[in-house]
Design a protein around this nucleic acid. Structure first.
Length: 791
RNA sequence: GCGGCGGUGGCGGAACUGGUCUACGCGCCGGACUCAAAAUCCGGUGCCCUUCGGGGCUUGUGGGUUCGAAUCCCACCCGCCGCACCA
């Protein structure tokens, strides 16, 4: 008598077993003792506990990692798979503000909920390694690392224009300004001049363009390269005739230098205030104040002549200097030579103001009207011109980047305190290491008001200067939460270490992360920052590797009703109610079955029903087989062969192809074949294989069915290996084509020679009717597949 | 404008290295069970013809390479994503 499939009972039961046994705890290697060679660090981006629940995107993400973890573990790999919480930062704080609670209260409650949800989904996580960014045991080391960056001149303080979000009342990084708006709240970002801490990401700009041995999606590398925006060109000095000043321009088209007919500087260029006409200064004051997006959107170009001239170093021509807002101060040098014949924007400007144009590159891409450089191909001409200017000290090849240093100071409460002290006598002094961590005080009024909330807390702010002992002030800002997430994956490896952020030996063993799974939206932020962190730490000898993530995979968005699930759209469906209805195994299977995991997918309730049906069918078939099939089952036969083929497919898909939906289809096929032959001699073997292969996806029901088949501890059972001898078929279906069109299919013996295959194919009545009794011009034989006659 | 990814039934998708296009699932149609329905089970299902033997056509469009193309090459169309008055 087959018992009913009761997912909730089964799931709770096995989750308890795994928890009690510490089934997924993985110890670190110990120095001096033998270590397992084939190790795997499976990591998915850690969640923000800012919302009250996991969403289906998390479910997709972590289930994928879970399948990978189970298959690897059971294939003999040493797999570490930790979890933690990105608990600091704006989203968490804003959520707390909405609830009228302290951020600590909100996020700690959210963490509780999410952890319970994760356990309910049965994910094989090593909870012993859990960390959260807001715990002093974690942020002590975030502060310590921050000081190392400062010590190594990779973090510095500077006054300069920064992006200010008027709604969130804080500076935000360039990476989180989208079209001039705050990525989080959508408010229009203002530029403010402030003294801020910056991480010197630009120090690694060139290296960040390279991905040695990394298996990253082409998309992600392209996004990062775009963001870094490396541009090779030359800097050329122009002398201002009236003042004798030198102004540098940056150009990628030195070959068009003879085509320069005027000269343009940005409104913010210091030369404007120093020397330009009153009219030009007036223009600059207005134009410079307009945001870049507005400038770009303008349909007509604007500008004013300064009354001054720049001398073209290559031919002595005097070019009128204009101020115009289409030239930006923060790219290149803030000044350009304008070549209207070969640059669209310069062309537009010239047309608007009636300035001349000069063609210097002909249709063949060769230089003309360029004096002694005439006839050279453009690229060669550019090199020759720059070389000549360099000899005269008027130019040199240079490289410019779009990437800017990462601003990390936040004028908000809920973040990692910055471990520096400001002393009037001694300047900016690090908090002594033995005094770390600087504890984030529990304050009542943490609401943002334009000034960092900590600044109002005298108890926190007033300190003794560690150097002179005099009165000094703490840094009232907190760190960008992306500082926390730039190294959390290292802390997971050694989360109980009280002496150091981590031990190099264990980190070098596990890292780089073997497979990192997370959203592509982190390409120019978290993923870039983490690479920067690891390169720096490698340079200081803290770690023995240079890239944090060997392989990266981006999950698609889970959509509901055609749009990405999001709280603002109100179409979020959390996992709880779906697990309530169908059980965790069904949810896990369906989220992966919907389609390729890196594509956006639409959540449809009907689809889940199909998976539930499959689980019930599996349940029934297994129980029937347990009763009907011979106990000492045969390992050969058509079912056994199907089972072996399924082993090959599932294993290859998960381990090599990183594809998760097709293995489910493969097991479904196997179960479909089984359901008609539960008493076959090889049915038991095929059934055990099916249960074993589905275990990474549906570990609870698989464990229960494994027990029904008379075994135990499937989660530790070695991953099935295909019996090669059973993969060989005695016969196969020979496809016979005439002129590439399929005309017949014949079941033939696998041992036939090519000639015999052709002979069999020619015997076919249907094929004969297409051959019309004649001889084929050509015959193609693909062994074990097909014969093609060309007539 | 520059860069990246994609386009296969009614739907999600499979086909990995050029070799049987449409696996698996959803939906739909028919049947069994039932007083009835749900659930479950069995069978069918790309499109168009058909004398029911079968025939023709199908992977965004057009061309090419090849015995053979969803797959490789060229051009174009459409969609999504990143960067962008970046000199």
């Amino acid at each position: 008598m087959t018992p009913r499939y009761e997912p909730h009972e089964i799931e709770a039961k096995w989750q308890r077993v795994w928890e009690d046994e510490g089934a997924f705890h993985v110890p670190n290697p110990v120095a001096g003792e033998p270590t397992a060679e084939n190790h795997w660090y499976q990591l998915e981006m850690l969640p923000y506990p800012s919302g009250p629940s996991l969403h289906m995107g998390h479910v997709l993400n972590y289930t994928m990692g879970d399948v990978q973890t189970h298959v690897r573990r059971r294939s003999g790999w040493h797999v570490v798979r930790p979890m933690g919480w990105d608990a600091f930062g704006l989203p968490a704080e804003n959520a707390a503000i909405r609830e009228g609670k302290h951020p600590r209260e909100t996020i700690e409650r959210n963490i509780e909920t999410m952890r319970a949800q994760m356990k309910r989904l049965g994910w094989a996580i090593d909870w012993d390694r859990e960390v959260s960014a807001h715990q002093p045991t974690f942020y002590r080391w975030t502060q310590w690392l921050f000081q190392q960056f400062v010590k190594n001149d990779l973090c510095y303080r500077r006054e300069g224009p920064v992006n200010w979000c008027p709604n969130d009342q804080t500076v935000i990084a360039n990476e989180y300004v989208v079209d001039g708006h705050c990525e989080r709240c959508g408010a229009e970002v203002e530029l403010r001049n402030m003294t801020q801490w910056f991480m010197r990401t630009t120090a690694y700009a060139d290296e960040l363009l390279e991905y040695p041995d990394a298996e990253w999606p082409a998309r992600t590398m392209a996004i990062q390269r775009n963001w870094i925006g490396r541009s090779e060109g030359a800097e050329i000095l122009f002398d201002v005739e009236e003042t004798g000043d030198d102004i540098a321009v940056f150009t990628t088209r030195a070959d068009t230098l003879f085509g320069a007919t005027f000269f343009v500087i940005a409104p913010e260029h210091p030369f404007v205030a120093a020397h330009a006409s009153e009219e030009a200064k007036e223009y600059a004051r207005h134009a410079g104040a307009r945001p870049v997006e507005e400038r770009a959107a303008a349909t007509k170009k604007t500008g004013v002549f300064t009354g001054l001239h720049a001398v073209n170093p290559v031919n002595g021509e005097k070019l009128p200097i204009w101020v115009a807002d289409y030239v930006l101060m923060d790219y290149g040098t803030g000044a350009i030579m304008a070549v209207p014949a070969h640059d669209e924007r310069d062309g537009e400007f010239a047309e608007t103001f009636g300035l001349p144009a000069q063609v210097v590159i002909d249709d063949d891409g060769k230089l003309v009207n360029s004096g002694r450089f005439d006839g050279l191909p453009a690229e060669e001409g550019a090199r020759a011109i720059v070389a000549e200017l360099e000899a005269e000290g008027r130019g040199k090849p240079t490289v410019h980047y779009r990437l800017r240093d990462w601003s990390v100071s936040r004028q908000r409460y809920w973040g990692c305190p910055i471990p520096f002290i400001h002393c009037e006598q001694c300047g900016v002094v690090p908090v002594p290491e033995e005094q770390l961590p600087v504890i984030l005080p529990d304050i009542e009024d943490y609401a943002p008001k334009g000034k960092p909330p900590l600044a109002a807390n005298e108890e926190y702010m007033a300190v003794e200067c560690p150097e002179c002992g005099g009165p000094a002030r703490r840094d009232p800002d907190t760190m960008d939460t992306f500082v926390d997430s730039s190294w959390y994956f290292l802390r997971y490896i050694d989360s109980h270490n009280h002496e150091a952020p981590f031990d190099r030996f264990v980190v070098d063993y596990w890292l780089p992360v073997s497979q990192y799974i997370g959203g592509i939206d982190h390409s120019t932020g978290h993923l870039l920052y983490s690479r920067f962190f690891v390169k720096a730490m490698n340079d200081w000898g803290m770690v023995g590797f240079r890239e944090p993530f060997a392989r990266v995979f981006h999950q698609g968005w889970v959509q509901l009703g055609g749009t990405k699930m999001s709280k603002t759209k109100g179409n979020v469906e959390g996992p709880d109610e779906i697990v309530d209805r169908y059980g965790a195994d069904a949810v896990r299977l369906y989220i992966l079955f919907m389609g390729p995991a890196d594509q956006d997918m639409e959540w449809t309730p009907d689809g889940v029903e199909g998976i539930v049906r499959f689980l019930r069918r599996l349940w029934r078939v297994v129980h029937e087989v347990a009763e009907a099939a011979p106990a000492e089952g045969a390992r050969e036969g058509s079912l056994a062969r199907k089972a072996n083929e399924t082993i090959v497919r599932v294993t290859d898909d998960v381990l090599r192809r990183f594809q998760f939906h097709t293995p489910i289809s493969a097991v479904m096929e196997l179960v479909n074949e089984l359901s008609g032959a539960v008493d076959a001699p090889d049915a038991r073997f095929a059934t055990e294989t099916a249960v074993s292969l589905i275990q990474p996806y549906a570990p609870h029901v698989a464990e229960e069915l494994w027990a029904a088949l008379g075994h135990e501890r499937l989660w530790e059972e070695p991953w099935p290996v295909a019996d090669e001898s059973q993969l060989v078929r005695e016969t196969f279906e020979l496809v016979v084509q005439v002129n590439g069109k399929v005309r017949d299919r014949l079941e033939v013996d696998s041992g036939l020679s090519e000639d015999e295959l052709v002979a069999r194919a020619r015997e076919s009545e249907r094929v004969r009717s297409y051959l019309n009794g004649g001889e084929p011009r050509k015959t193609i034989v693909v062994p074990r597949k097909l014969v093609n006659f060309v007539v």
